[in-house]
Amino acid sequence: MSFRVTFVAAARSSPLLAERFEDDRPLDQAGWEEVQRAAPELLPLAAAELRYCSPTPRSRATGDALGFAPLVQPALRDCDMGRWRGFTLGEAMAREPESVDAWLADPHATPHGGESLLDFITRVGGWLDTRPVEDGGRIVAVAEPSVIRAALVYALKAPPSSYWNIDVRPLSTTTVTGLRGRWNLRFDGVAGQTTRA
């Protein structure tokens, strides 16, 4: 049984350098404007048999604004960052530089008291592997960029350290096709943006 899961990265809720761990802020004005520009390209994804989203306000708002009427999936929540929740990476580094270095270097590390990177990747991958869909079915999931990076690492069976080398831009789409344990990656691009040569 083969099916397709298209991940849509949530529109932004802050400038890149102001992004916070487990950010629960709603879309900012720029995020709303991005959704409006991208909507014509992304609206066809609403025809998917199953439509999901992360539990964050910006993921829910992005899915709703695109007409997906997504079902919230707790398994698609961001990585549990423990006491670093709400910090930017810079703030965590200023307070606990050795702990941040350990967390970045070791996928098993939990210096913040939350979830390890490996556990996060495994949780998101478990969600991916257990979707109830018919052969040839389509799923769309609006999620935080971190969740999409975790799904891609899992789908490609890449080393956890590759998580740090994947860049997921707001409203970009990435599709994995296949079935449990056998995934293929397809790059779809960034909605609402033109490519320059």
Rank of each mutant, 00 (worst) to 15 (best):
S2Q: 04
V5G: 04
V8E: 02
R12E: 13
S13C: 13
S14T: 09
S14C: 09
P15Y: 10
L17P: 05
L17Q: 12
A18L: 11
A18F: 06
E19P: 00
E19Q: 07
R20T: 06
R20V: 04
F21E: 03
P26W: 01
W32G: 07
W32L: 12
E33F: 04
E34R: 14
V35S: 09
V35C: 12
Q36W: 10
A38N: 04
A39V: 00
E49Y: 09
E49F: 03
R51F: 09
T56D: 13
T56A: 13
T56V: 05
G63W: 07
L66R: 08
G67S: 11
A69K: 08
L71P: 04
L71M: 12
P74I: 01
L76N: 14
D78A: 13
D80T: 03
M81I: 02
R83K: 15
W84D: 06
W84I: 02
R85L: 12
R85C: 15
L89A: 15
L89T: 14
G90V: 13
E91N: 13
A94D: 15
E96F: 12
S99T: 10
V100Y: 14
D101I: 10
W103C: 00
L104R: 15
D106I: 02
P107I: 02
P111N: 00
P111V: 00
H112L: 05
G113H: 09
G114R: 07
L117H: 02
L118N: 00
D119Q: 14
F120A: 02
R123K: 11
V124E: 01
V124H: 11
G125V: 07
G126S: 00
G126D: 01
P132Q: 13
V133P: 06
E134W: 03
D135G: 08
D135V: 07
G136K: 05
G136E: 10
R138V: 09
I139R: 05
A141G: 01
P145K: 12
P145W: 11
S146E: 15
S146H: 01
V147D: 08
A151L: 14
L152P: 07
L152Y: 06
A155H: 01
A155N: 03
L156M: 15
K157Q: 15
A158I: 01
P159L: 11
W164E: 07
N165T: 13
D167M: 08
R169L: 14
P170S: 10
L171A: 00
S172V: 01
S172A: 11
T174A: 03
R180I: 01
G181M: 07
R182L: 05
L185W: 06
R186C: 10
F187D: 08
D188K: 06
D188F: 05
G189W: 03
G189R: 05
V190C: 12
A191L: 04
A191G: 03
G192W: 12
